[in-house]
């Protein structure tokens, strides 16, 4: 398993388990979804404009490059959303998604 982010400190927090693409993933309480995902994998999502995979860019809620989905089809900004146990996350847009209205 190749990760992108590397934990350097603060590793004694309680564990939380969430589902990512149907697989259980362990994270630490206080992690953002982005950190939970990128300490286990290299990417967050597929770019919708080319074949590239994306892993976020600004970490400060400004670029919107870090969107992932809940199983219900809601989009979440991974860099500013804290993990909670039982979350059910997809790194691809689910079939039965809401019609996406871009503004």
């Amino acid at each position: 398993m190749i990760s992108r982010f590397v934990r350097l400190d603060e590793q004694h927090r309680p564990r939380v388990t969430l589902q990512v693409n149907g697989q259980p993933v362990d994270a630490l309480e206080g992690d953002t979804l982005m950190v939970a995902l990128l300490t286990q994998s290299r990417h967050l999502r597929q770019s919708e404009f080319d074949s590239g995979l994306r892993a976020g860019f600004c970490l400060m809620a400004a670029c919107q490059d870090c969107w992932v989905w809940t199983r219900q089809g809601e989009r979440l900004r991974a860099c500013s959303t804290p993990v909670s146990s039982g979350m059910d996350i997809l790194t691809y847009q689910p079939e039965a998604a809401w019609p996406v209205h871009e503004s």
Binding site: R4, F5, R42, G52, C58, L59, M60, C63
Partner: peptide, 24 residues
Amino acid sequence: QLAGTYSLGGAQIALKNQAVSIGH
């Protein structure tokens, strides 16, 4: 645009706010 490019401020936030490095 390749995954693994972050803004400099973003790299700092990763460390300050989450105690992680953006890469190895």
